[in-house]
Each structure stands twice: as C-alpha cells, then as structure tokens.
Amino acid sequence: MSFARASIGLIALAASVSASIKTCSNNNTLSCHSSSKAGTCCYNYPGGALLQTQFWDTDPVSGPTDSWTIHGLWPDNCDGTYESNCDESRAYTNITEILKAQDRTDLLSYMEDYWVDINGDSESFWEHEWGKHGTCVNTIKPSCYSNYSPQEEVGDFFQKTVDLFKGLDTYKALSDAGITPDESKTYTLSEIHGKLNQAWYFFNVRGNAITGKYQAADTLTKASCPSSGIKYVPKSN
C-alpha cells in the first residue's frame, strides 16, 4: 500500500500514563542507534523504530471528513522488517472493557471517532492492533512497571498512539501546502509522496515508548509511486 511521509521535529508529548511505569533518565540512547542486541525498559529493541500510521478511507468512508484516522503504532526493527503477535498471553479481546475499567472513557470516546474500522467493527480492529503490534513493544512489558496492575500497559499503548496522532494532523499539513481532497484534481510526486490513502510517520525514541522522547526519522520502506496523476479524493457518501 502506498504511503505519505512528513518530517517533523523532536516530539515530547504529555500523556495520561500510568504512574507505575518505570522512569528513564534523560541520557538514554536513541533507539536504532546502538550496537546493543538487547532491549531494556528504557531502550526499544528489536522494534526500535515506531511508526504512527494513519488512514484516509473513502470507500467506504470512515471518520470525520476533515481528518485522517488512526491505523496504529507499529514497532519496526530499524530496517523495514518487524515482529508481530509477540505475546499471545496478552492478546486481549476486550479492549473497550479494559479502557473503561481504567477510567479512560475520554480516550475511548476519542477512539470511537478517530480510530475506526472500515467495516464498522472497531473493537476487533483495536484488538488486532494491540495483539499484533502492541505486544511487541518491549518497553511496555509488565516487567517495566512498578506495582503493575493487569492490562495496565494496554491503556498506555492506546493513549500514546492517540497522543501522537493528535500531534500529527495530516489533513491540516496537506491543506497548508495547498493539497486538498478533490474528485478530479491530481498531484505530482514532487508535490506529495504516494497515493493518499495512508500516512506513515517514522520515529526513534529516547527512553521507553510511553514517556520517552520521539524524534522524527527517515522512512524505512520504499514505495513505488507514479510521478503524476496522484489523487486525494474527498470523503463523501
């Protein structure tokens, strides 16, 4: 699938994280920038690159007409490969109930608007994203918490993904560059990168995936895109 990438600066987002997650010092090595072959609660490995991915769904339409929607937060092995479904024992199938039990109703409400499944089954979509990708983020394993409460890391994962998404307004960034949805207008590759149905933002992280500092990184994948005739169609019925 084609993708678009935008470069942004250092990100340090305040999030509603669990108080019991272990803290990391300010001089942690940036992920993907060490010869170490081991992960710790303060060093993301092997999934050292984290991708915040977004959708622009038009057939059928999902999410607000003036916003992209969340796909997920994916750990990448710093080379375009990735692990998946890393801990079947934590592949929970009750994300909504977990978030409600953690009193994250505001988060859940936001997800219902901006993290939506194209077929209308958002719960299954969230379960898939957590089981396939969330369980592979080594810095949010239960052992990385003090006084750990079961499933605590699940809420932190979804909160962090939403917080990153809120700071990466793809619709506005494109609009500010004069690139807006249109049924007939096309763009060249020099204007935008890829067919606009998905955007991937690549980061390395200094510290753990929840409280660490995210730094924009170059793309780890290559897309085969036409040089012109690229469409960005509006969401409509």
Rank of each mutant, 00 (worst) to 15 (best):
N138H: 03
N208M: 05
N26G: 13
W126H: 05
G229N: 02
N138C: 07
E183T: 11
D163N: 12
S190W: 05
D66L: 06
S122W: 06
D66E: 10
T81A: 12
H133V: 00
L107F: 12
W200L: 03
S228K: 06
S67F: 01
Y45Q: 10
L99T: 09
A49F: 00
L50F: 00
N138G: 08
K160Y: 01
V17W: 04
H128P: 02
A223H: 04
T29Y: 14
S190D: 12
Y114T: 12
Y114A: 12
K213A: 12
L220C: 09
A223S: 13
S34L: 12
G212D: 09
P60K: 15
S224L: 10
H133E: 00
L164I: 07
S224A: 14
I210F: 00
G63F: 11
I21K: 04
F157R: 03
L107W: 13
Q215Y: 15
T221K: 03
Y114K: 13
N27G: 15
D218V: 12
K172M: 07
S124L: 14
N28V: 08
P75C: 08
K185S: 07
H128T: 04
K235Q: 14
T186N: 01
N26Q: 10
P234A: 07
G229F: 05
G212V: 10
F203W: 13
H33A: 15
Y214I: 00
H128L: 04
S16C: 11
A4F: 11
P60Q: 09
